[in-house]
Amino acid sequence: MCDSNISAFPLHRRRKLVDGIARILESKNGEDANAFWRATAMTILVQLSESGIAPRLAEQEVRALLHAILGNMATRSAEKLAR
C-alpha cells in the first residue's frame, strides 16, 4: 500500500475529543488507564487508516492527540490546585 496525500483535520484540535478522552483517563489509574488509551489509540488508528490516511501520518496524529490530552489533564489539574 502506498502513502496517500489525504490529511485529516488535526485530532489534537478536536476539543470535544481531547476533553472527553482526558476526562475518562482522569477517572482511571495504572493499567486501566493504559489499557483504555491503547484501545482508544488503536481504534483511532484503524479509523484513520480506513479513511485513507497514510500510516505514518496517522501515527503522528495519534501522538499529537496524546500530547494534547496530557496537556489538557495538566491544565485542569493545575486549575484545581490553584483553587
Score class of each variant (00 low, 15 high):
Gln60Met: 10
Arg13Thr: 09
Ala78Pro: 03
Thr40Glu: 11
Asp32Leu: 08
Ala8Asp: 13
Arg56Phe: 06
Leu17Met: 09
Val46Met: 14
Gln60Phe: 11
Lys16Gly: 04
Ile6His: 09
Leu57Ser: 07
Ile24Glu: 15
Met1Arg: 15
Thr43His: 11
Gly71Gln: 02
Ala41Trp: 06
Ala39Leu: 05
Gly30Tyr: 07
Arg76Gln: 07
Arg63Pro: 01
Ser27Phe: 01
Leu65Gly: 00
Arg38Ile: 01
Arg83Pro: 08
Leu65Arg: 00
Asp19Phe: 08
Leu81His: 15
Thr75Phe: 04
Ser7His: 13
Ser27Ile: 01
Arg63Thr: 12
Pro55Tyr: 14
Thr43Trp: 08
Leu81Thr: 13
Met42Cys: 06
Lys80Glu: 02
Asn5Ser: 13
Ser4His: 10
Ser27Gln: 06
Ser7Pro: 03
Ser7Cys: 12
Ala39Tyr: 11
Ala39Gly: 08
Glu59Gln: 09
Ala64Ser: 13
Leu11Glu: 11
Met42Tyr: 05
Trp37Pro: 06
Leu11Ala: 01
Ala8Gln: 14
Glu59Pro: 01
Pro55Ser: 10
Gly52Leu: 04
Phe9Trp: 12
Leu81Asp: 14
Ala41Met: 05
Met42Leu: 12
Leu81Lys: 14
Ala22Ser: 11
Arg23His: 09
Lys28Ala: 02
Ala78Thr: 08
Lys80Arg: 15
Asn34Thr: 02
Thr75Tyr: 02
Ala41Glu: 14
Ile21Asn: 04
Met42Ser: 14
Ala39Pro: 01
Arg13Leu: 14
Asn72Thr: 03
Ala41Gln: 04
Arg76Glu: 10
Ala68Pro: 04
Val46Ile: 15
Ser27Arg: 01
Arg56Gln: 09
